[in-house]
Design a binder for these strands. Structure first.
Lengths: 233, 233
DNA sequence: TCAATAGTGTCTATGAGACAGTATGGT
DNA sequence: ACCATACTGTCTCATAGACACTATTGA
């Protein structure tokens, strides 16, 4: 039996991997750190969990502070907890990572905590140096997002309502970095139960035939799943 | 900017949802608590994360202490972190839940921390009262295990090597609580790339034709996935 | 021989990839 | 008229469910 009682000083934080689609690229929100350690370096947004706050609540609060947005409208899910000793040089810190997905979010507003926040394409963010173990967290967020497009309807979380099937297809194409056949994609999405619901309205693009508009349906799972591989043999 | 620095007293623990197959039932390891709170009540095994230990390491250590088994041979993955204020009446406690899967594990040995540990069918464990929020954690562990059988090869983690395809099929049948067609199951498993590898040996059952024996293959993902629904239409 | 389980083969329905063809807007 | 994109339909192939059939053991 250990004499351990968990009273050694530890800190618990939440860190956010916030993805959006901007300019046909998957982008992640990063902040420039205003204090040590890693002062001036780039990091995922996040902060301490407060006394009477649950984990999701802390994530929602940080989301609001960093993006100026009502987090209640975004998809938010817990990713994983990171707690390797030494990941924060100051004190033993456990961080509960969250993944947030949303449609083209506003550029963070000056005069708030988010003043030093900016969007960066994920492909680029994975190559630059990030504070702490944030690169690994980002990597896991990306893997999770990619995987979840397959068997859930979260792709629609990237779309501003109402949206066209082409909008939705672009989400898959950008996140998975491949091209999908428009007609097969359409057949699959419309056959799936309550993935999207038609509004009856149309949207005229810059060129070409106007497209039907949809909203997100009630279903959270996508069955049969969308397949990423063109015959993995 | 918050004046918060995370120095309020908090504890970080790991809790384990350990599943095995015993007597054709999915069972979970529970301990009888020897101290308050919930003294005498049933709970998931777990304990404090130590100073120089990472989260997975803490989970492996607890696994060894509770089951007397080398956790390195089991499947172990992080489930989710629970930290709602008040979930532990003593102090703000965050618990990182882990899911462990293994073949028919030994009954915990007396004279260790595991002296008050016992296996209980999951169906029953979900109906009895458990300490803290352990029922919710157990529920998530079950959901995760069920989901992962679909698109990963973890089902084999429940089988002692070498095993027959019938053994493997029983895992699916017990965890999913349904019956699968033996021949279609066989075709699917053998067609999947490196799910199982033949040993060439046979095992004679109590009755019937001897079955070919297999070991776990290298693949962790199962593609195409095993489907649970008989045409969800 | 029968009972019981392992393993093989086949028919059919469904769904995905490929892609031709039609519809509807702007210029 | 033409172009670009939305949408529809069709052919083919791969895979899953259903299930008949054969194989191999012990009683």
């Amino acid at each position: 039996m250990s004499k351990y009682d968990g009273t050694a000083p530890v800190a618990v934080t939440v860190d956010l991997v916030i993805f959006t689609l901007r300019e046909s690229a998957l982008q992640v929100l990063l902040i420039e750190r205003g204090k040590p350690p890693y002062m001036g370096g780039l990091a995922l947004p996040g902060g301490f969990v407060r006394d009477h706050e649950d984990l999701r609540g802390a994530a929602l609060r940080e989301l609001g502070e960093e993006t100026g947005l009502d987090g209640g409208k975004l998809h938010l899910e817990q990713l994983r907890t990171f707690g390797t000793p030494g990941r924060d040089p100051r004190v033993r810190t456990f961080t509960v990572a969250y993944l947030a997905l949303g449609p083209d979010l506003p550029t963070p507003v000056a005069g708030t905590d988010a003043a030093h926040a900016r969007w960066m394409p994920v492909a680029e963010a994975l190559t630059v140096e990030l504070a702490f173990d944030h690169r690994a967290i980002l990597r896991e967020g990306l893997d999770r997002a990619r995987a979840k497009l397959e068997y859930t309807t979260v792709a629609a979380a990237f779309c501003q309502e109402p949206f066209t099937l082409a909008d939705l297809r672009h989400v898959y194409e950008v996140v998975w970095d491949l091209e999908l056949d428009p007609s097969n994609f359409r057949r699959k999405v419309l056959k799936a139960d309550d993935f999207v619901v038609p509004t009856g309205a149309l949207r005229a693009p810059e060129v070409g035939r106007p497209a039907e508009l949809y909203r997100r349906g009630r279903s959270e799972i996508l069955y049969p799943p969308m397949v990423r591989t063109t015959h993995p043999s």
